[in-house]
Design a protein around this nucleic acid. Structure first.
Lengths: 103, 103
DNA sequence: CCTGCGATGTCGGATCACGATATCAGCGCC
DNA sequence: GGCGCTGATATCGTGATCCGACATCGCAGG
């Protein structure tokens, strides 16, 4: 029942979209990036998430070969960028609601 | 795969703690309050959540009788307020990371 | 009575998180 | 050539969670 972890888990897609809107990203890179921000997400969570986001039309992927190794590279779709915009307003709202310190 | 909904679901405990730190709250009131902020949370999610948060030591509850009807009323514990503080910094961090608008 | 209301609680099926494990292709090295 | 290492993605099984529908409970009014 780690509520902080739960909150971060919910924020992962926002983070993914944020990065995938500006550049091409791939799973292992995202995992490392997220880890630097205090997220602890396991591959068994991240990869299925990327798949779902692609099936949902938020991301597109193509295979990129680096040193013979296949790397699945994602970018945000138009829908993905729209969703990111919604997400940003929602994040701002939540921040506004929770960050008020007058009890 | 509604990422906005997923994000909000992760933010619910923060919202609950935020309110339960300042006053006594109860399930149905929280549900309405959350609904006003765009959350759509079903009782089958909210009540078990409150129970888990109490078992985790974030909330304490007592029964309050109004018109003979029993109402379970929650307040944040010391641990709950500490967690809320952590949550606030995390929310601020996420907002800072995601709210940069240079695409 | 019996129905309605406010509020809490719980059921079953579906979805999801997670860590461990599998897979795959090239590289270095002996 | 055989062996293990590395980077990266994929998947399995178990356990936890979500959710809406339904159940409950006590009282008020007709």
């Amino acid at each position: 029942m780690d509520v902080v972890r739960e909150f971060l888990r919910g924020a992962v897609p926002a983070h993914v979209l944020h990065h995938a809107a500006g550049q091409e990203v791939y799973g292992a890179w995202m995992a490392e990036e997220l880890a630097h921000h205090g997220y602890r997400i396991s591959p068994g969570t991240l990869y299925p998430l990327l798949h779902r986001m692609e099936t949902a039309g938020l991301l597109t992927s193509r295979e990129h070969v680096v040193d013979g190794r296949v790397r699945r590279v994602y970018t945000a779709t138009e829908t993905g960028r729209d969703t990111l915009a919604q997400l940003r307003t929602v994040v701002a709202e939540v921040a506004g609601e929770v960050l008020v310190h007058d009890e």
